[in-house]
Design a binder for these strands. Structure first.
Lengths: 225, 225
DNA sequence: CTGTCATTGTAAACTAACTGACAATTAGTG
DNA sequence: CACTAATTGTCAGTTAGTTTACAATGACAG
């Protein structure tokens, strides 16, 4: 029964919809599970064999730490996202780890080598996967080019729009986002200081562009951003 | 005889080494060629069927133009690089084009649909291609995260290091780079103003970290950057 | 209910980098 | 070879955003 659950977890991802049960089994025999609560650090066990991860539930951030111990956010992973070495190449960057942002994080993983075997046997899956990585590439490139050229205000607006787009619950033009990020997190994502972010958020609240609190962000009219 | 040349052009790319002659033919029947000289604009003919491009010779930059007509450099493509829609998804962003940076630009291209067919029939090629796209993703992510957090000076240093690494001719610790970029191009790549770039380059020349001219950049000791 | 820690709010001094404006130099073309 | 356009050099004024520092608020554990 527990085994059944495992399969379902993987099968649920749109990338794996085309797979047969036996192919899923091939991956899942070695599937690892992990649960985490808020603030918990999840290492990409570099000692272990390289793995690909799939976030089933919750939110996590991928973080790197530089020589001086400064955390920088590399990516925010949402439910349904694949992460880890998408290049299918092993990389021994030890100073990179994931951190749970919500209390109900569930991750499953499988060996990269098994995944590669599967791709070789299933060209259409390989094609889907390539498109998936390509899409990720495009998303990252776009968000970065937004980040770099515009000022902090525009960057915050753009970030909120993107966030609302991908996760917000929309009714008419009003959008409500579950806020699992601190202002400091947001600051890091849009590459500005915590103070500037606080300032801008308060400014937007004064102009009635949004209501901010630690649980949720509510945007009365998304078109005005 | 001309046909033979065509095949060779594609076969030369490391991605295609594993292909049989007939598979190459399948791609090449519809291969398009293009030559360009410095400054020439090459459109990703959006009216035409979507294509994948391979830069055989020279250097080009991928550029987007925003509403106000400002050019921003999205990518620099070097000899041997594949470019175009790596996502294998059509995208109707018309405000994106390529511009030749050197006088001897040669591009060949093939239809995306043909490429997809080939990937489906050739799983190991699909896997290689996936890794290729993944690598591109990693490269872009790294270069961006370098760009964003550091100041202009560090960014320029990092850029020069990367450039020297990928294209420079190294003897001992001295590196010579063929300079096909203007200071304005460099400024756009490292996201700063043209004046700041000029200032920093001159500063580095004073400190004998490099010698700059329009033809080449010579770095006496790459470790000092 | 209270103490503690994380998060958010606010302000002043400081600085890197941008903008605009113009001059000097170099490359390419007829 | 001279003319033109592109590239590079230089400067002063301005500004967005950082830094430092501390206060206020909220959340959570015992």
């Amino acid at each position: 029964m527990y085994d059944e659950l495992k399969y379902w977890y993987i099968r649920d991802h749109k990338l794996f919809r085309t797979l047969s049960m036996s192919q899923i089994k091939q991956l899942c025999i070695i599937t690892g599970f992990k649960k985490a609560t808020k603030g918990e650090i999840i290492y990409f066990s570099s000692s272990d064999l390289p793995r690909i991860f799939l976030l089933k539930k919750g939110h996590i951030k991928i973080v790197t730490v530089d020589e001086e111990g400064n955390e920088t956010i590399k990516d925010i992973i949402q439910k349904g996202d694949l992460f880890g070495e998408l290049t299918l190449e092993t990389d021994n960057q030890v100073n990179e780890y994931a951190k749970a942002l919500s209390d109900d994080v569930t991750i499953c993983s499988f060996l990269m080598s098994d995944f590669e075997d599967l791709l070789l046997r299933n060209p259409s899956l390989a094609l889907s996967y390539t498109k998936f990585v390509g899409l990720k590439l495009k998303r990252i490139r776009n968000s970065y080019s937004n980040l770099i050229f515009k000022d902090a205000r525009t960057r915050l607006h753009q970030f909120l729009k993107d966030w609302a787009e991908s996760e917000g619950i929309k009714t008419e033009n009003k959008v409500v986002i579950e806020n699992y990020l601190t202002q400091n997190d947001i600051a890091q994502i849009i590459c500005t200081s915590r103070q500037t972010t606080t300032h801008l958020l308060n400014e937007m609240e004064e102009n009635e562009l949004l209501q901010y609190n630690r649980k949720e962000i509510s945007i009365p009219d998304i078109r005005k951003l």
